[in-house]
Simulated assay, not measured.
Amino acid sequence: MSDVSLAAPPRAQTLNSLGFAKPPAQTRVVAAMSGGVDSSVVAAMLAREGYDVVGVTLQLYDHGAAINKAGSCCAGQDIHDARRVADSMGFPHYVLDYESRFRNAVMEDFADTYLAGATPIPCVRCNQTVKFKDLKRVAEELGADCLATGHYVRRVESDHGAELHRAADANRDQTYFLFATTREQLDFLRFPLGDKPKSDVRALAAELGLRVAEKPDSQDICFVPQGKYQAVVEKLRPGAIEPGDIVHVDGRVMGRHDGVINFTVGQRRGLGVATGEPLFVVKLNAAAKRVIVGPREALGVSRIALKDVNWIGENAAVEDQLDGRPILVRVRSTRPPVPARLSVGAGWSVLLDAPEEGVAPGQAAVFYDPGTTRVLGGGWIAATER
């Protein structure tokens, strides 16, 4: 009888920290660098781990003018900060002039949305277009295995592919701004900060010797100085802001306004009218140049009609398999998700278990899986019903 050699079973391939079955040195990562502490830490951390890091900063506005406003990003001083991080860690850094793309995809939409009586979220549009579409294409052209960003979200691998989950630190979670991320984009993206609290990120920045360790977080919309969005809209659409009436829900004309752009649904202060009761902005009718106000009880809505829905939850052969599906929905970035059900029979909509106040067209409704941290997708709020 001949000897038989029994080969040892093949060893499972060891994945690196980004999920690839090869050494970090053989894994090229394009790091999106805004100049802030979060994206800087991602790039520096991966470089220290031995990854083949290429830093890319998108110049989005102001032709790189040296803006020193705290809370800004993607222009002037922020570009210099990103370059210094790359120089200190020894990896290449490129600045791409995306000003015209950013203006067309984000700023023009921002102005048009406000003038239509809705409340835009330019950060979502930026992620949806310039960053996760255009920058992803650049990363692929550079031969990258993935694109890494400083967002506080988690990417979880499952048997059915990559899933998007809320960050471990609920106070830093940014999934609301990434609901439009597609399955294809999610396969390519990496979010190394999703499991870390902000305090650890700043401590890591100090440990890595980064000068941005104590840099303030971005607060305002990057292209809106001091939060004066009306001035930006006036610049983009000269003469488009027109005055009109402030009207009570019962039909009474309460006063005049200088433009619906100065109001948002749910607003109480600065209405310019006084009655003996607290009044809130209930609805904006841009076509009629009317701001409709009423008591708090007039704010509650139970049904939210959506457009441009992006679904990244479980695969459904047909949309009506999702009809009636229980979800949690977040209707503003600062609010917790609340129980609701999907309705897709006659267009996508959300039926809230209990009325929500201040739900504004132009904002997003983001879907979460009840009982887990998974993001199922979301859509843009087109209309609301009481």
Score class of each variant (00 low, 15 high):
C126G: 04
G294H: 09
V224N: 08
T149H: 04
V53W: 00
C74H: 01
V156Y: 03
A111W: 13
A213Q: 04
I292H: 12
A148G: 02
R84Y: 02
V301G: 10
D52R: 11
V29E: 00
F179D: 11
V329P: 07
K131G: 04
V106A: 05
G19E: 00
L147V: 10
A167D: 01
E234C: 08
L210I: 12
K131F: 06
Q219F: 05
D134A: 05
R125H: 04
D159K: 14
L376M: 10
E297D: 15
E314R: 09
A206H: 13
P120S: 06
A305V: 15
G90L: 06
R166Q: 11
H93N: 10
R335M: 14
R28F: 02
D323W: 09
G358A: 15
N310C: 04
Y368N: 06
K196Q: 12
R252Y: 03
E297L: 06
A144C: 04
V85G: 01
G64E: 05
M45Y: 13
Q128A: 13
E356N: 14
A316R: 14
A274D: 07
R183E: 14
A298I: 14
R202N: 12
V153L: 09
N262K: 08
V338G: 08
Y98I: 01
A170S: 14
F188P: 10
N285A: 09
D200E: 15
A32L: 14
F20A: 03
I381H: 02
L60H: 03
P278F: 12
R303G: 06
F191H: 07
L342A: 08
T373F: 00
V309T: 10
A317T: 14
S349Q: 14
E242Q: 15
G50N: 08
L178Q: 05
A286K: 05
D220S: 06
H160N: 12
G378Y: 01
L147W: 00
G117M: 11
V273R: 03
A44R: 05
W380H: 08
V247T: 12
D134V: 01
F177L: 07
R332A: 15
T27D: 04
L284V: 12
L376K: 00
A287K: 13
G313P: 08
L351P: 07
